[in-house]
Design a protein around this nucleic acid. Structure first.
Lengths: 229, 229
DNA sequence: GAACCAACTTAATGTTTTCTTAAGATTCTC
DNA sequence: GAGAATCTTAAGAAAACATTAAGTTGGTTC
């Protein structure tokens, strides 16, 4: 279940506020209207927000003041929506900490797209899917179902091959020596003269290559080890 | 030392490209110009980027195609900079995965402010300088992924060369005698008549010089040893 | 409990890359 | 300018890796 996304809409014109709230709601987020700087301030203190849509010209506290506070105290992304269209203002607010600046009159669709864009990026970080699914390029691996696909088509791996791939995909681009691999997966000390890991890598490679001949996923670094690439 | 931020500037008009690169550089990031979709694609595969500035109308691959790939494969933020100013395009690309859309002709200050804004947000989340990364001037070395770059472009080193460079970069001002180097890396006693270290240093130097001819990184102190410079 | 099967390991062989050696060229110090 | 230290180059040696096939093991089925 996804966490609900709360958006605070700060705008004194009640028609525009309503319109913005509609846009937000239609995108599947929860909107809260605030009609003055001081009102917005109360809401900010009261709960956490995932996004603030902020007009600059407001009764009570100005948008600039609010922006400053949000930046100092919270880390919420802020999209400015303002009729002030001088470049000066735009640049100043972006530098002060705004994440975007939309000029009035605005295009509803664009506002919606920009909100989604920011939320998409924000959610990717703040809510890092604690999932059991790993991806790397076209590769997908599900830890739970042990399912591995490339471009959607299934690749059948043995237990060891799966474990190695999972290890690699857990730390993409990290270089693993044979000893690293052996000790992580077999849980015993690595004796230098062992070729086992090499054979598994070879088999794994040929299965991956069969599924996607265009891409080499496992790279050899001579004298150092292997890494996903 | 902060991690350096690498920005890929994809734009076929060389004047505009230059201008954008200047903006990026002035903000303290490292810019790499790409003049076609296919060229950009090569750079994307070659290293990780923190931001892509992307024109839509490009020879080779279109901006839209690149955007799609970046979204599927990487997680890099993308700012579209385009002359196509129909709302349709704007909304479509934002929905496809772009993080921002700037219309040409653009205001340099605004571009700069928007880049900074995205990087500020992005950097807050992405790893706060992992300690396995060493930096010296334009040189970057990652102990974990064994990646070495100069100004963002990859330098391929062998195991020994990497080990020597890592040793030097770990103690940037220290002077290492041949014996020091040999004993740290080979873990055996140094017999004076050995030229091995010298050969490795020579090879290492020539690889570094190929990547950045302007700078000599390894200095010889006659009769004493070597040191990073 | 014997036969079978799949996955794993070991072993053998071939290939590729890197390392070392050695010799001549160069550079620096006195 | 002589001598010593260092640099460069190239080629042979050595190490690391890849692949294939043959043996082992452990579990499943009849």
């Amino acid at each position: 279940m996804d966490k609900k996304i709360h958006v605070l809409v700060v705008e004194d014109d009640s028609d525009i506020n309503k319109l913005l709230c509609t846009v937000v709601t239609k995108s599947g987020y929860i909107a809260q209207a605030a009609y003055s700087g001081t009102e917005a301030n109360l809401y900010l203190d009261r709960q956490e927000w995932d996004l603030v849509l902020l007009d600059l010209m407001l009764p009570g506290l100005t948008g600039e003041q609010l922006l400053e506070k949000i930046n100092e105290v919270f880390r919420t992304p802020v999209i400015i929506i303002s009729a002030k269209d001088e470049q000066q203002t735009k640049i100043a607010t972006l530098r002060t900490g705004a994440d975007d600046f939309i000029t009035k009159p605005f295009d509803i669709e664009e506002v919606s797209a920009r909100i989604d864009s920011h939320m998409r990026r924000y959610m990717r970080f703040s809510n890092p899917t604690p999932s059991n699914r790993l991806t790397y390029k076209e590769l997908e691996l599900d830890k739970e179902t042990k399912f591995v696909t490339i471009n959607g088509s299934e690749v059948t791996l043995t237990a060891r091959e799966f474990a190695i791939l999972e290890l690699f995909m857990s730390y993409p681009k990290k270089v693993f020596s044979k000893a690293n691999v052996f000790e992580s997966i077999w849980n015993e000390e690595f004796m230098g003269d062992d070729n086992t890991v090499g054979v598994h890598i070879s088999n794994l490679r040929s299965k991956l290559a069969k599924a996607n001949p265009k891409q080499e996923y496992i790279e050899t670094l001579w004298g150092m080890g292997y890494r996903l690439r």
